[in-house]
Design a protein around this nucleic acid. Structure first.
Length: 421
RNA sequence: GGAGAGAUGGCUGAGCGGUUGAAAGCACCGGUCUUGAAAACCGGCAAAGGGGCAACUCUUUCCUGGGUUCGAAUCCCAGUCUCUCCGCCA
């Protein structure tokens, strides 16, 4: 959600910055709606004052007049609410303003590589894809999933299932013990207002799995990421300055419809309707957002360093960022079978964009209630980490070595062999 | 699924038709005292929105939405949420 006062005072600048984003909402009539809205408020308030005075005076001769005023107020108020709703709907579907650090650009081709790390060791055999390896091991079963459920789901079995669980524990341990995050095991279902708070609604309803609890219950959705539920923990709250920063981590399943990516990554478990992800969320004083984003991104890359997986860090251009983000770093891991880097984490600062939607504030050092800053990042996507380990640690015979850092989480085995052997 | 109870400022909690935006306490901020701290005492302290360069001022808000009334935190209706007890259950 945007600050209407800021837009009012900086409209041209606002318009220019939003035009750099992938935005489909028409913004030209914002000022007009704002003007109408304020005019109606003023007219309404004048009448309200008059009415108040009559009732205070207890002058019976004026009682009839007061009744008339009431109906005029009702009319004005209805009109004002209509305009205000229109304005709010408009504002709530405009993406966040890009941070000054963000490079201009229209799509992923304009993202900038910031750093590349790790060795792309050349193997003396042709590297296989994770799904080929996983199916050969008998531990990834896509056919079975399509039988029980449908496409874009997978059964992970045996040692790969254990590896998936190990990754979750490994990441949680690092973020809680080394990086100072508080571990949360949250609900996986979010209410409509929660989904609105982080920006999934109203614009991206098509990507969400809506579920039915009871007929008269409010709308509920499976979380597409733990960001939604963790960030909203501070919804409708005024925090103390000493509460900040709040750093939260959760390992949860995530559910996405992936509407609009038909035909994309249909093979393998790169893009699934359901996947595990370890998510980091920070609630901070807004002036600390940039600093916190660097810190958070380092917390994410730290995992890849420990797993000795090659990766690169990029900054997304204005046209490629998510709706709520003002600045985003993507971390991409090397996938030998594709000879490409693929996204494994995305770390974003949202500034006060989400906290305005959530109404999340804190008392600053001047004792004023101001909106908090929110950040979120994957640390990391478990499914994709699993893929990258399978592919990067494969051997010629099709078995998978276990990275040293994970062995304590894998009963100290050093290798995953096919089931038959 | 059955039976009750409740929802008031950051928190606890009074008020149950007319200077009540709301007592009191806690928390918080400022001051006096103290070598420093604590204690004690004094003072301040809800939010949102509109107008104004500003000092300031106006409006709204006591869960939400309707209704009664000149006037509602207070009365009536509907809904939401929370809690307790019983049943069922991971």
């Amino acid at each position: 959600m945007h600050d209407i006062k800021y837009i009012r005072d900086n409209f041209e600048n606002f318009k220019k910055k939003i035009s750099k984003r992938n935005n489909t909402t028409k913004i030209d009539n914002i000022l007009d709606l704002d003007k109408k809205n304020r005019k109606l408020i003023q007219d309404k308030e004048n009448l309200e004052k008059e009415k108040k005075n009559i009732s205070k005076s207890k002058d019976e001769k004026m009682f009839l007049k007061s009744k008339e005023i009431s109906s005029s107020i009702k009319k004005l108020s209805d009109e004002q609410i209509k305009i205000k709703t229109e304005l709010e709907n408009l504002l709530s579907s405009i993406p966040n303003i890009p941070h000054n650090d963000v490079p201009d650009g229209s799509n992923e081709k304009d993202n900038k590589i910031i750093e590349t790390k790790g060795n792309l060791q050349k193997k003396n055999f042709k590297e296989k894809s994770h799904f080929e390896l996983g199916e050969k091991l008998g531990m990834l079963d896509f056919d079975l999933a399509s039988k029980t459920t449908g496409s874009r789901f997978v059964f992970v079995k045996d040692k790969l299932a254990m590896l998936e669980r190990a990754l979750s524990n490994f990441m949680l341990d690092i973020h809680t013990l080394e990086n100072g995050y508080r571990e949360i095991s949250p609900p996986l279902i979010a209410s409509e207002s929660t989904m609105y708070g982080t920006g999934q609604l109203p614009k991206f309803e098509n990507d969400q799995f809506e579920i039915k609890l009871e007929i008269n219950d409010g709308r509920k959705f499976l979380i597409p990421t733990a960001e939604v539920i963790l960030t909203n923990m501070v919804k409708n709250q005024i925090l103390k300055q000493s509460d900040l920063p709040i750093r939260l981590v959760a390992s949860t399943p995530c559910f996405r419809k992936e509407a609009g990516s038909y035909g994309k990554d249909t093979k393998g478990m790169i893009r699934q309707h359901q996947f595990y992800k370890v998510e980091l969320v920070s609630i901070v004083e807004p002036e600390n957002c940039s600093e916190e984003l660097e810190r958070m991104t380092n917390c994410a890359t730290m995992i890849l360093d420990k797993l000795k997986l090659p990766y690169r860090k990029i900054i997304l251009c204005s046209g490629d960022m998510g709706f709520s983000a003002e600045k985003t770093y993507d971390i991409e891991v090397w996938l030998p079978s594709e000879q490409k880097y693929r996204e494994i984490s995305s770390c974003s600062s949202c500034g006060t964009f989400q906290s305005r939607r959530m109404n999340s504030k804190y008392k600053n050092s001047k004792n004023e209630n101001v909106f908090t800053g929110t950040l979120n990042g994957s640390g990391l996507a478990i499914g994709r980490t699993l893929i990258s380990i399978i592919e990067n640690y494969q051997t010629e015979d099709g078995s998978i070595n276990i990275p040293d850092a994970l062995r304590p989480y894998m009963n100290n085995i050093d290798k995953i062999l096919p089931i038959s052997s």
